[in-house]
């Protein structure tokens, strides 16, 4: 294998690992900055991936394989699916004032059970075969014309999935909304001091529900990205811990979007670099596993230096009680 191929593959693979992580983590940031604990990212991304894959499977006979619309249908399906499933979290946390850790675990357990069950039901109805996976293939890759010719950094713009641009755009918009708009300010107030928002005439419950719904939509988008690119199908193997990794990235990024972006990129790049170096050296798969430890170890080491001033949102995990103080 040529060195240039390796240099090319590292950023391409790194992006395809970092982007879903980033968008899920941003979802988590919205939810937790709004003061609601979000342990349900794993379940929400899985459910989003399920609805996205389902809409692809349903639309495939109408549009034919290879239609460019499929990607957008998948994304829309995933965002709607993730958003509607997150309403359960909103109902439990905001309306019923439930323990938010439990609510997150409920979502994770339910999502895993429901999607596995529904996938086999749908498969049986559509193809009369018993299978717990939707084969949806991977979306087309493309290369950006001019940017890809930049030396070294060009690798980021070759062999891109369409999702990556969408996610970058969404990430930028969500950054703008969170820090530069009235809604974003209110949302952050919900997480720091909900009573001040209440006193200012805002509606804490409604703001939190919207935050949770945004989180669901973004997590769903992350889920369909994984299903429609890297793994090329929807199956229970979607629950392989991406959601938990995103939670880790969010906390490492101190509940702020730009540091979280850096964490996700760092994580994706070290992961793909380790993998590509193994391929390049022609190591057996056993040793690859050992090198795949590197990103996690380095993250732990970095945390030692960057955690000193980490501070979660103050009202995180407290159900809002108007009468309390």
């Amino acid at each position: 294998m040529d060195v240039m191929d390796v240099m090319d593959a590292i950023p391409a693979d790194g992006l395809s690992f970092a982007m879903p992580l980033l968008i899920m983590a941003i979802g988590g940031i919205y939810c937790e900055r709004g003061g609601v604990l979000m342990l349900a990212l794993e379940g929400l991304q899985g459910f989003g991936a399920f609805t996205g894959a389902l809409s692809v499977v349903l639309c495939l006979p109408l549009l034919g394989a290879g239609s460019p619309c499929l990607v957008y249908i998948a994304m829309a399906g995933a965002m709607i699916g993730g958003m509607s499933f997150s309403l359960l979290h909103a109902l439990l946390c905001v309306r019923f004032k439930a323990q938010q850790v439990i609510s997150g675990m409920v979502i994770n357990t339910l999502a895993m059970a429901l999607t596995t069950f529904l996938t086999s039901v749908v498969n049986e109805a559509l193809t009369s075969q018993v299978s717990n996976r939707f084969q949806i293939g991977a979306s087309e890759r493309f290369t950006l014309p001019i940017l890809s010719r930049i030396p070294i950094f060009g690798g980021f713009f070759r062999n891109m999935y369409p999702f990556e641009l969408v996610i970058l755009a969404v990430a930028f918009v969500s950054w703008h909304v969170l820090y530069k708009t009235r809604f974003g300010l209110r949302l952050r107030a919900c997480g720091e001091n909900p009573h001040s928002l209440d006193a200012a005439g805002g509606n804490v419950g409604r703001t939190r529900v919207i935050a949770i719904m945004i989180c669901g939509a973004l997590a769903g988008l992350g889920g369909i990205f994984v299903a429609y690119s890297v793994s090329a199908n929807f199956s229970p193997s979607i629950y392989m811990g991406y959601g938990y990794m995103a939670i880790a990235a969010m906390i490492f990024g101190n509940w702020k979007i730009s540091p979280t972006f850096a964490v996700c990129m760092f994580f994706g790049l070290t992961k793909s670099a380790g993998y590509q170096i193994c391929l390049w050296l022609g190591m057996t798969s056993n040793y690859t596993d050992l090198l795949l430890v590197i990103p996690y170890v380095v993250t732990l080491v970095l945390l030692v230096f960057f955690s000193k001033r980490n501070q979660p949102p103050r009202a995180l995990g407290d159900p809002f009680d108007k009468g309390k103080r």
Partner: peptide, 18 residues
Amino acid sequence: FNIHEVVSCIMINHITSY
């Protein structure tokens, strides 16, 4: 180091698994 236990636990989980 004020490292949040959720992050270190998740990292250690993956390291252990590999």
